[in-house]
């Protein structure tokens, strides 16, 4: 494969366990998304747009998953990125123009991949640290990890459930795919692996905190998924590739389940009160610490406010 052996640059497609895992997950999730989409877009003019976008997404995803070299990967990645953006906005009324600013923020990450590709072909390609760092940056942006942590909750908040399924279970988890696929590049670099694990750890802790205090169902799903991807980053960094793949598939199904089977708005009355007052482990913390963490998580470390203004428009 080209990632391993640059003499085989002609080898465009590649199939292995990683491909298989992502392919089956992707297939299942796309079916679920179309099934859900058919119920929400039925009879609306967006239905055909939705079907086309999902197909485009599938093409991009397939290309990326099957890719055996940089060119194919980048092509698939770009198609998938554009399709993901269309999924976010396809329910909107385009009379006001397509929000270009949001598009660039969402797609900023591809520069990293492009640079990594360029660097790998450059004379100093043997300095794999730069390539690895660029790959890590791209992967962490795609997986909504630190330091670019806010796109997923924002996107989920502003899109339909069908699109949300694809974004949470597939688009976002392509970050981990990129890391697994380029494993040979950073395999022997301890510093990159430590950095990866650290990023994952901090993101997991942060997102788990946000998820615990979240009262909005969709944002909670986004943060739960982010937290799991943080853990997946740690697993990938530690070299547990199979464990990571199982985790990725499990996270995809869990996310899809939580999005598709949303709780109903409760009927006020006696039943509503029984949910309450369950003690959580946080209640054992000293008051001052407890309130501080709660307030930090509620304000989402101030990350949310800054980003939201651009993406809402």
């Amino acid at each position: 494969m080209a990632f391993l052996n640059e003499y085989m640059f002609w080898n465009d497609f590649h199939f292995d366990g990683l491909t298989l895992a992502y392919l089956t997950t992707g297939f299942a999730m796309t079916l679920l998304a179309v099934w859900n989409g058919s119920s929400i877009f039925r009879g609306r003019r967006q239905w055909s747009l939705f079907v086309c976008t999902v197909m485009l997404f599938g093409v991009g995803y397939g290309l990326a998953v099957f890719s055996g070299d940089w060119k194919t990967l980048l092509l698939g990645w770009e198609i998938m990125g554009a399709a993901s953006f269309l999924l976010i906005i396809l329910h909107r009324d385009f009379s006001g123009g397509i929000p270009a600013k949001a598009f660039f923020i969402y797609r900023m990450g591809d520069t990293g991949l492009l640079l990594a590709m360029w660097a790998s072909l450059h004379p100093w390609r043997h300095d794999t640290t730069i390539i690895s760092l660029l790959l890590l940056a791209t992967a962490s942006l795609q997986a909504s990890q630190l330091p670019f942590s806010s796109w997923l909750p924002q996107a989920l908040e502003n899109t339909t459930t069908a699109s949300a399924v694809l974004l949470t279970t597939l688009t976002m988890q392509m970050g981990a795919f990129l890391l697994l696929r380029t494993y040979p590049y950073w395999e022997h670099q301890l510093s990159v692996r430590i950095l990866m694990a650290l990023l994952g750890l901090v993101a997991a802790a942060m997102a788990a905190g946000f998820a615990r205090v979240q009262s909005s169902v969709k944002r909670r799903v986004a943060y739960v998924s982010m937290a799991h991807n943080g853990l997946i980053f740690i697993e990938v960094a530690a070299g547990f590739k199979s464990l990571a793949l199982i985790h990725i598939a499990a996270n995809a199904f869990l996310g899809a389940y939580r999005l598709l089977v949303q709780p109903s708005v409760v009927v006020s009355g006696a039943g509503a009160r029984t949910i309450s007052n369950r003690k959580t482990w946080e209640d054992r913390l000293p008051k001052k610490l407890k309130y501080t963490i709660y307030m930090l998580d509620t304000r989402e470390w101030g990350l949310y406010a800054r980003f939201s203004r651009y993406l809402r428009s």
């Binding site: 909005s216 509503a272 309450s276 007052n277 946080e282 407890k290 309130y291």
Partner: peptide, 19 residues
């Protein structure tokens, strides 16, 4: 955000800590 957390009827795992 604050109102949502304060009035929450059961989405969040960690409820508003003041009762």
């Amino acid at each position: 955000r604050i109102l949502g957390n304060y009035l929450d009827h059961g989405v969040s795992d960690w409820k508003f800590p003041v009762h």
